[in-house]
């Protein structure tokens, strides 16, 4: 076993936090914003919705939800690539790719909710 530093507990912590957040909150958003709104089961003025998401608590909530969900998914996708491709050598590039994606997504989300 290698004695080099292992940062998996670091990423696992965000994976866990994101798993909790996404499991509690993602399905209702998919249902309301991704299905009900486009199918006009429910209508809302974009101005009203914008006012709602501009609330400081809504900004924090959206940032946490999107960012943590991305970290959760990044960790899982990294391990699934390893499981499905049986290629240990891709684990390091896969880890860089997945976590970088989550970090970039977090920065974009931060800018977006900040400048709403």
């Amino acid at each position: 076993m290698s004695s080099s530093r292992n940062n998996d507990p670091f990423w696992w912590s965000f994976f866990g936090a994101g798993g909790v957040f996404s499991s509690f909150f993602i399905p209702i958003h998919v249902l309301l914003l991704g299905i009900a709104l486009p199918l006009a089961w429910w209508t809302v003025e974009p101005e009203t919705l914008l006012e709602l998401v501009r609330h400081p608590l809504a900004r924090i909530y959206l940032f946490m939800l999107i960012s943590l969900t991305l970290f959760h998914a990044a960790h899982r996708i990294r391990f699934t690539l390893h499981d499905l491709l049986l290629a240990k050598q891709i684990d390091t590039p896969a880890a860089y790719l997945c976590y970088t994606g989550a970090i970039v997504g977090t920065v974009v989300t931060l800018v977006t909710v900040w400048t709403l």
Partner: peptide
């Protein structure tokens, strides 16, 4: 494990929704 792909896709869609709103 593959739910992660769809959940991540939705996180991005939600972000795009918020962007479009703003």
């Amino acid at each position: 494990e593959l739910t992660a792909v769809f959940v991540a896709a939705y996180a991005i869609i939600l972000l795009l929704t918020v962007r479009a709103l703003s």
